[in-house]
């Protein structure tokens, strides 16, 4: 018994260290979560959050009305799926390529440059995209196509799944490939030496050494993205297409739909309902995925 007491006392300094952070997370993240009750209330400004009347599930209804409901869910999930798969693949490939670069200076230069897109804000990216795609004076139509067969980008939905995917990858691959690259560098070089002696080619080394070593990072990052699979980057889907209506079939996601639907009414309850549903579904997915990981490969589970 005294032993146990002693054990706890030993950890008190550690708990004390976590205290400020815990307090901050409680204040900044957990207390406002109480606002999730707004999803089930008809919010009245003068009554405030607590006294506003309950509203059942009717705040959720607007998400499922009309022909666009399934489109926006399809788009949200579809784009996220593509982003996760392509984003991870591209990031790993770039990381492996970077690792093959021998010169330190060259390597550093490459690393710096591929991070530039990550630093540019989405609004600005939307102006860049416009500079390229503008029908009358865009770089592509005006300079590359010289005005002949000019393509009306902002009225042709068929191009946009590719444009949006390209922009998303362009903006994010630098950041994630640097993370993978760091992990690759951390791999014990003796593995490669041994493989080399065994006569394994570069490709074989990648498959049998690099990829297995990257597995924990891939799993963690993927689990984190699965949790947000019902969310979308508002800027990417609203600002990059300049809010163009003709493109809505392929650019509408849950977030842009909610924004458009509530812009006039500014309905706090409905906005909370949408956010709640997105978080809840994401949570269920990530919890399930984590459970699976836990069964197969306990070491790499998130929690």
């Amino acid at each position: 018994m005294p032993h146990k007491k002693n054990k706890w006392r030993r950890y008190i300094p550690l708990y004390m260290m976590m205290l400020p952070g815990t307090i901050y997370l409680i204040i900044n993240n957990y207390i406002p979560m109480g606002g999730l009750v707004l999803a089930f209330k008809k919010f009245n400004y003068s009554l405030g959050m607590i006294k506003s009347p309950w509203n059942g599930l009717s705040n959720f209804k607007f998400l499922f009305i009309g022909a666009d409901a399934w489109k926006m869910i399809r788009n949200t999930l579809g784009y996220n799926f593509v982003f996760i798969v392509l984003g991870t693949t591209l990031a790993i490939i770039v990381a492996i390529l970077l690792n093959e670069v021998a010169g330190r200076k060259a390597r550093k230069l490459y690393q710096t440059i591929i991070l530039v897109p990550y630093l540019i804000s989405t609004v600005i990216v939307s102006y860049i995209v416009y500079a390229f795609l503008s029908q009358d004076n865009g770089f592509i139509n005006h300079t590359l196509l010289r005005g002949e067969n000019a393509i009306s980008w902002y009225t042709s939905p068929k191009y946009w799944p590719f444009i949006l995917t390209f922009v998303q990858l362009w903006k994010s691959f630098g950041y994630s490939s640097i993370i993978y690259f760091a992990t690759i560098i951390g791999i014990d070089p003796t593995y490669y030496e041994a493989a080399s002696i065994d006569g394994a080619g570069k490709l074989k080394q990648v498959v049998s050494i690099t990829l297995p070593c990257l597995k924990p990072t891939i799993i963690t990052l993927t689990l984190l993205s699965i949790g947000r699979v019902f969310y979308s980057d508002f800027g990417l889907f609203y600002q990059i297409p300049m809010g163009a209506g003709t493109l809505l079939d392929v650019t509408q996601t849950i977030d842009t739909y909610v924004y458009r639907a509530l812009l006039v009414s500014n309905d706090v309850g409905r906005a909370a309902a949408a956010g709640f549903l997105q978080s809840l579904l994401g949570f269920i997915l990530v919890y399930g995925a984590n459970l699976m990981v836990n069964k197969i490969d306990k070491e790499n589970a998130l929690f």
Partner: peptide, 20 residues
């Protein structure tokens, strides 16, 4: 307010077609 669900859904359709 009495038709806010429909209004929310129709707002999106208006955004899609009216300007074009």
């Amino acid at each position: 307010t009495p038709v806010s669900d429909e209004y929310a859904a129709c707002s999106n359709v208006i955004d899609k077609y009216l300007a074009s």
